[in-house]
């Protein structure tokens, strides 16, 4: 595996559409639940241990060779909010385009054919990592990092938060990111034996509910 390929895939500038999404931060800011670096850190920790863990285990599972169509169904089952399912598929479609152009692969082509309007983003992420010659742990790391870096950069724009403070939040979360990535890979290995139902199903009800509310706003900066 190439460590540099991991940096390419994990780069926030990788052109896969993430810049237009806040990971729930816009709704949380509006509701007053995120108002500075401290509350951003708590928000990110909560998202990491729920949506981040689930995404990372799906991505790791895809790298390990679990059936991507089954994984996509598992992702649907773990995403109660229709708005979040739509956002995940849209981001999956965007990542698919970038990944196929970057690391051409028959597996990615097959998944694009199966889901022309987009599979869940973590499943595409796993296959993209596979196409890039990366391992399950790498894909899990990408997923957990994305689960917190998206809200952090969105909050810089939403609150005019000091960018150094936002980056400090990410640095302080690093040990948690390590733990959750590890946990996600273990769960994916377990699912190889016991099926996709064994994958984590941690949920953050407030993220799901506020995503529905956010999707109905007439004026917003971010798509989700």
């Amino acid at each position: 595996m190439s460590r540099a390929a991991l940096l390419v895939l994990a780069d926030g500038r990788f052109p896969a559409g993430g810049h237009a999404h806040s990971g729930g931060a816009e709704a949380a800011v509006k509701a007053g639940r995120v108002s500075g670096a401290g509350s951003l850190e708590e928000f990110c920790r909560g998202r990491l241990h729920t949506a981040g863990l689930v995404a990372a285990s799906l991505a790791a599972g895809a790298v390990l060779g679990l059936d991507p169509v089954e994984l996509d169904g598992a992702a649907d089952a773990r995403t109660p909010s229709p708005a979040l399912r739509t956002a995940a598929r849209r981001l999956g479609r965007q990542l698919m385009r970038a990944a196929r152009a970057t690391w051409p692969s028959a597996e990615l082509d097959a998944l694009a054919r199966e889901f022309p309007k987009g599979a869940h983003q973590p499943v595409v992420l796993g296959l993209a990592a596979r196409a890039a010659g990366l391992g399950a742990e790498d894909a899990a790391y990408c997923a957990v990092y994305e689960s917190v870096s998206g809200p952090a950069s969105a909050t810089v724009r939403l609150l005019s938060l000091d960018p150094f403070d936002a980056t400090g939040v990410l640095a302080r979360l690093a040990p948690d990111l390590d733990r959750v990535a590890h946990q996600a890979v273990e769960a994916a290995r377990c699912a190889l034996v016991n099926g996709v139902d064994a994958l984590p199903a941690a949920s953050a009800p407030l993220l799901e509910i506020s995503a529905e509310v956010h999707a109905a706003w007439p004026v917003r900066l971010f798509a989700s």
């Binding site: 500038r13 559409g17 810049h19 849209r90 965007q94 385009r97 970038a98 971010f222």
Partner: peptide, 20 residues
Amino acid sequence: VETGACPHTAIRDDISANLE
């Protein structure tokens, strides 16, 4: 297309939403 507060990103650096 929604651009996440960065209109130039959506037409130049990360064009995937517009291509879709």
